[in-house]
Design a protein around this nucleic acid. Structure first.
Length: 660
DNA sequence: AGCACGCCGACT
DNA sequence: GTCGGCGTGCTC
């Protein structure tokens, strides 16, 4: 009996050797059942031979499943992502096969097949010249199965969707072939789905974490068998076993929610480019505000750029005004300036709609006792508790700890002495209701809208004109099309600029310009009111002038000077554990033994930005390398043979985005 | 990652 | 004397 290597979709494992009985035929990529730790698991034949010699321990393969084998491109992709993100391949395979229940059913072929696409015949939409240029650029690589990265840059409403619809149609016209559209998580709502259904006569398959196991199973099988031709999904959809993938589209490619932060950390946009490269297919990165990394790759001629400059149809770009919150506005102890109140009044009189944007959940980010200065702090984390009036509690946004409202201060026992500090969206809503008692308001935050169903619900209320003023966090920035919105008020434009990570400026710019894009999407001209304490700040200024390119060029220069991405590579190593001193000591030890190199520097350790989460103390080491150096190789060499004490956890994040 | 094996404190 | 604490290490 020959030995083969089986990879199990389990966390932190490499492949294991099994023997292949004579009566079972299984080749590379096949799904098989094996015993692992006395339990039965599904695995994939990863190698058709094994060098593992301890015959005593080797167990036989139990059976082969009748399923399409994993394609060699996908296996290569799994290995590549494992190596790049410094995770075991088993944890990457778990994203390819996310549901074990697929295999529990007696008959795998028993699933509801998706109806074959009946394309709505050549739509009569006239593309603009720019749009046609973009379509033509991808037609050739699409037909010849060639790799190419196309960046579609266009302000909100310029018709990017029409461009990729045209290319989707190219694929769907064929007998087989699949298109994957990756979206930032919360945008997986009905608007795009409806447009797709209307245009192509089919509902796309959807993939996101809210699906039930049963739905996942069905969609997964349809993807594996090729029944699903058009798949709309969140970042995790990138790893599914497509039978015949032809085109990937990343919508809102700049969105930082493509970076997975838990478990295996990866940047889905970047990994999608890699998958497209391995599969030899084209990929589209679409955004009104492409990321700095993407622009850099355009400048390097690695990606090709097509700009859609004008808004489609009658819509025009909104005008922006800056409101200085120092002086008068600050003295009035209100969070909505007189200027913004005037604009809101106009909107209400004209029966239009407005958005007020503040990227902060709850009522107030900090509450203190006016008598003794007591502050509500989390006992498990190094954070303040956020006051949530709607939930009558103070809550930690890191670990979820919460205490119910009480009227007495726990230290000085004074009644009703609490003072909320600073605004959250709930407080803005309160102020709006006070100023405009008749206005119909709605809150859109993770606390009030926690499912895709709830998002759809709110969107419909807005579209039906049942709401006048929408108050929300970044949730409202994502690509919904609300025709009646003519005003966007940004309550605190300075908020994202703090925190000091290298993408703070860029992210603020993107978020604010994305929100601003909600205004005036039809014939009514939109207006954006930006409230700030730093009216001279170049980011705020470039928002008003719309000179995004000069802002980006400045940012690129800045990053180049300090060898930061994309000019250098970063990895962050977070060391955590319950014993502060032990964790700190181990972190210092690690840095001390880091190999000396003139192309790589190891910085730290420093206490992480949030130095304690769920009672675990956290220290961070930053590894900075020249662009052409393999930072993974260096870290492997460094940490090889180093064993962290069992009580201490070590997590490597390649290309880190947040600095928690 | 799980989960078993293994060597030291408070219980019937 | 045992029940169980979770530190360490293996899983083919």
């Amino acid at each position: 009996m020959p030995n083969i290597e089986i990879l199990l979709p389990k966390l932190q494992t490499n492949s294991f050797a099994y023997s292949l009985p004579q009566n079972i035929q299984a080749n590379k990529g096949d799904f098989v059942q094996v015993t692992f730790r006395k339990q039965e698991f599904v695995g994939i034949v990863w190698q058709e031979y094994s060098e593992y010699l301890d015959q005593e321990k080797i167990k036989p393969v139990l059976k082969r499943y009748d399923l399409p084998p994993l394609k060699k491109e996908l296996m290569e992709f799994v290995d590549w992502v494992a190596e790049y993100t410094m995770n075991a391949p088993g944890s990457i395979l778990k994203m390819v096969i996310p549901i074990q229940s697929v295999f529990k059913e007696k008959s795998l072929s028993k699933f509801i097949p998706i109806e074959p696409a009946s394309i709505v015949p050549a739509s009569s939409i006239n593309l603009s010249e720019e749009q046609q240029v973009a379509v033509n650029k991808l037609k050739e690589p699409l037909d010849n199965k060639d790799h190419k990265v196309l960046v579609l840059e266009g302000v909100t409403g310029s018709g990017k969707t029409e461009v990729y619809f045209e290319l989707i149609e190219q694929v769907l016209k064929e007998k087989s072939g699949q298109v994957l559209i990756l979206l930032p998580e919360i945008s997986l709502t009905s608007q795009l789905i409806q447009r797709i259904t209307k245009r192509f006569g089919i509902e796309p398959a959807r993939w996101h974490s809210d699906l039930t196991d049963k739905e996942k199973r069905n969609t997964w099988l349809n993807i594996a068998y090729g029944g699903a031709r058009l798949i709309v999904g969140a970042r995790s959809a990138l790893f599914l076993p497509y039978s015949d993938l032809r085109l990937i589209i990343i919508d809102e490619e700049h969105d930082s929610s493509f970076k997975q932060e838990e478990g295996v950390t990866y940047q889905a946009r970047d990994m999608a480019v890699v998958r497209a490269y391995i599969e030899k297919i084209p990929i589209i990165l679409s955004s009104a505000t492409p990321s700095l990394e993407t622009i850099y790759n355009v400048n390097k001629k690695k990606y090709e750029l097509v700009t859609l400059a004008s808004r489609f149809g009658e819509a025009t770009l909104p005008t922006s005004v800056i409101v200085d919150m120092k002086g008068d506005n600050a003295r009035k102890k209100k969070f909505i300036s007189a200027e913004l109140v005037d604009e809101l009044k106009d909107v209400l009189e004209q029966g239009k709609q407005a958005i007020l944007f503040l990227n902060r959940r709850g009522y107030a980010p900090l509450t203190l006792c006016g008598e003794c200065g007591y502050r509500f702090a989390c006992p498990n984390c190094s954070t303040w508790l956020v006051e949530h009036r709607s939930l009558s509690c103070h809550q930690c946004h890191q670990c979820g700890y919460s205490v119910n409202f009480k009227s007495k201060c726990p230290t000085c026992h004074k009644e009703n002495s609490f003072v909320p500090c600073g605004p959250g969206v709930e407080r803005i809503e309160e102020e709006v209701k006070y100023t405009f008692p008749d206005a119909r308001t709605i809150l859109m935050t993770r606390d009030t809208v926690n499912s895709i169903q709830a998002v759809e619900n709110i969107i419909n209320q807005i579209l039906d004109g049942k709401v006048d003023i929408i108050i929300g966090t970044q949730m409202i920035a994502k690509g919904h099309h609300f025709p009646k919105i003519t005003l966007v008020g940004i309550i605190d434009a300075d908020l994202g600029l703090l925190g000091g990570d290298l993408r703070a400026a860029e992210r603020t710019y993107q978020l604010l310009s994305q929100v601003s894009g909600r205004a005036g999407r039809e014939k009514d001209k939109g207006k954006v009111v930006i409230q700030t304490f730093n009216p001279e700040n170049p980011i705020i200024q470039s928002l008003v002038t719309g000179e995004r390119r000069s802002f980006l060029e400045q940012e690129i220069m800045g990053r180049k000077m300090v060898h930061m991405p994309p000019f250098g590579k970063l990895a962050s190593i977070v060391i955590s554990g319950f014993n502060d001193e032990k964790v700190a000591e181990f972190a210092r030890f690690l840095v001390k033994i880091s190999p000396v190199s003139n192309t790589i520097s190891v910085l730290g350790p420093v206490p992480a930005l949030i130095s304690r989460i769920k009672n675990k103390f956290r220290y961070r080491i930053l590894v900075k390398a020249e662009r052409n150096i393999s930072i993974q190789k260096y870290i492997n060499y460094w940490l090889d043979g180093v064993k962290a004490p069992g009580s201490i956890k070590l997590k490597v994040d390649i290309d880190p985005y947040n600095f928690f």
